[in-house]
Structure formats: structure tokens, C-alpha cells
């Protein structure tokens, strides 16, 4: 079990990030809708790192069964495009929630975390990494240049944090 505690100065807030044990990254969004593909693009880059103890999932949307996947990890980081948040990204701790409204095409990370805790008895710690995007209203598989810059910044941030824990690059 790897344990690591660090204080990281983020663009807009000071967050304590605890990374220990098995980590799950879930990058979600629709790559066919421009900057909405930031989450999957992040997941794709993270997968190429080949970090031991870091599992990567890429999907279009969060679904209830992700709760089971989350429950099998010590830490989960939900990576999504952020339509109006701070630049270049936000990173914040998530509190589990179980009273959210449910829709198959919009499930919140807090709800997934809540279901993992309540249904599967997990103690998984959750974080949200929201990368600021700008173009969502058209079709296309490209990411805008500003969003790409934000993606790189977010990736550099998390890559540094993950590698600081002693995870090795295969």
C-alpha cells in the first residue's frame, strides 16, 4: 500500500490530495462534440503512462455501474470537461451523495461515489478534475487550442502528483 499526502497549490484553491493504494481515473465525455472530449483525451494520455496501480476508464457518460468499479479502488478521480469553471482546470474533493435525481444520460460523480459507499460498502476517496473547455455546440473530434492548453496543464498536474507517489512508469 502506497500512502502519500501532499499540499498542492492549485490555480484557484488549496486542496489536500490524498493518493493511496489503487487509483482509478475516469475520463468521460463525448469525443464527437469538440471540447466535450477533454475527459476521454485525458484518459487516453493517462493510459499511455502505464502507471502501475492506476486504472484508467474512458466512457461517454457516467452510469450506475461505475459505482461497482469505483468501489474496487482506494481513490477515484473523475475527469470531465468544465463548461464554465476556472482556467485551466479545477481540482476538488468530492463528498458522496445518494439523494440526487437520476437520469441515465446525466449521473453526477458525487452520486457514483455515494452508491459505491452505500451499496458496496466502499471507503473510496473521490476527486473531480474539471478541465475548462469552450466549444461544445458543434460536431467534430478536435479539441480547441485553448482547451488543449488547459488539458496539458491538468495532465501535467496530475502526472506529477501520481508519479510523486512512487508509481513507476512501465
Amino acid at each position: 500500500m502506497i500512502e502519500w499526502l501532499s499540499h498542492l497549490q492549485l490555480p484557484h484553491e488549496k486542496t489536500i490530495m490524498i493518493l493511496r493504494g489503487d487509483i482509478l481515473l475516469i475520463g468521460y465525455g463525448n469525443p464527437g462534440r469538440l471540447d466535450d472530449g477533454l475527459g476521454p483525451a485525458f484518459a487516453s494520455a493517462a493510459e499511455k503512462l502505464g502507471l502501475k496501480h492506476v486504472a484508467v476508464e474512458s466512457c461517454y457518460q457516467l452510469a450506475v455501474e461505475h459505482a461497482e468499479m469505483v468501489s474496487r479502488h482506494d481513490v477515484v478521480v473523475f475527469v470531465d470537461a468544465d463548461i464554465g469553471g476556472p482556467e485551466p482546470f479545477h481540482f476538488r474533493r468530492l463528498e458522496p451523495k445518494v439523494d440526487a435525481d437520476f437520469s441515465t444520460h446525466r449521473m453526477m460523480p458525487e452520486t457514483i461515489l455515494g452508491l459505491a459507499h452505500n451499496l458496496f460498502g466502499a471507503t473510496t476517496i473521490g476527486y473531480s478534475l474539471g478541465i475548462r473547455g469552450y466549444q461544445f455546440d458543434d460536431f467534430g473530434e478536435s479539441i480547441s487550442s485553448q482547451a488543449r492548453t488547459n488539458l496539458n496543464a491538468a495532465f501535467e498536474f496530475l502526472e506529477t502528483a501520481l508519479q510523486s507517489t512512487g508509481h513507476e512508469v512501465c
Binding site: 450506475v64 455501474e65 459505482a67 461497482e68 445518494v98 439523494d99 440526487a100 435525481d101 437520476f102 452520486t111 455515494g114 452508491l115 452505500n118 451499496l119 458496496f120
Partner: peptide, 25 residues
């Protein structure tokens, strides 16, 4: 409607909710 959703099912019928998740998986 606050309980008439899958979250409500998970709270009251956890085994059924888990069954659905494992079958879909």
C-alpha cells in the same frame, strides 16, 4: 419522486440494485 429512482432502489433493495449492476456488467 425523491425515492422513485435508482438511488431509492439502492437504498431499499440493495441486493436487487447490485444484481442489476452485475448483470449489466
Amino acid at each position: 419522486p425523491k425515492i422513485r429512482n435508482v438511488i431509492g432502489v439502492a437504498a431499499k433493495y440493495p441486493d436487487l440494485a447490485k444484481q442489476g449492476i452485475f448483470m449489466r456488467k
